[in-house]
Design a protein around this nucleic acid. Structure first.
Lengths: 109, 109
DNA sequence: GATATAGTTTACCAAATGGTAAAGTGTTTC
DNA sequence: GAAACACTTTACCATTTGGTAAACTATATC
């Protein structure tokens, strides 16, 4: 299921472990946005927003492209799926224990 | 869907954004383990492992209990579901764009 | 072509993170 | 009850993180 390297999962999960960056991801889910449009909801300087976007780009969650003097950012949802897959796999590891517990309870009735 | 506070999502995702901690979570998915059992695969001192476990406990992913001189750690899979839900919601935000693109392509055929 | 706009670079800072070594505490076990 | 074991606490360290201010670059706009 998970196709990317552990190091990429590090970048992915820690990118999501920050409220500003999760907001940015949510904001981009509705379409591409410029850096200043992303910065607007937060009372934060441009360099700070740029650093968050850089973290998101390194994680593969976001890509950006400069057109004229504006840099447009957009979401790369394939990466979000990697995180989702890792969690799904972990839950799958865990679930058999629950099922065997259920069988055990049934058997002891 | 997501029932916990943003701050709890921070702790959750950044807890998962570290390879040792993801390994610990995977390791606990098969059942409870002592601190030294968790430490064994990593060439790491006990205090270091304790810090990782503390981060996991703060995130709600892990709980622990001391029996005799041994501390046993176990997974709290409900928290894993919170992370899963946040991602699912974000994908849900994003997906309508894909669908409208698909409709657009169909219409232009 | 002067001016405003959108972003970038540089230099800096405080606090958090991920680790260590060494000494201390409470349970077994012999 | 002495020794081994499983953790815990304390003190310390280097690096990373998340932010700032100020100066700079490139593109519109009037």
């Amino acid at each position: 299921m998970v196709k990317c390297f552990p190091q990429e999962l590090d970048q992915l999960f820690s990118a999501l472990g920050e409220p500003v960056r999760r907001s940015v991801v949510r904001s981009l889910a509705t379409g591409e946005k410029s850096l200043s449009a992303l910065a607007e909801p937060f009372s934060m300087t441009m360099p700070a927003v740029m650093k968050h976007v850089a973290v998101l780009e390194r994680s593969g969650l976001v890509r950006s492209e400069k057109r004229g003097r504006t840099r447009y950012c957009s979401l790369e949802p394939a990466r979000l799926k990697e995180a989702q897959d890792w969690i799904a796999e972990t839950v799958a590891f865990w679930t058999p224990k629950l099922e065997s517990l259920a069988r055990h309870l049934e058997a002891s009735e």
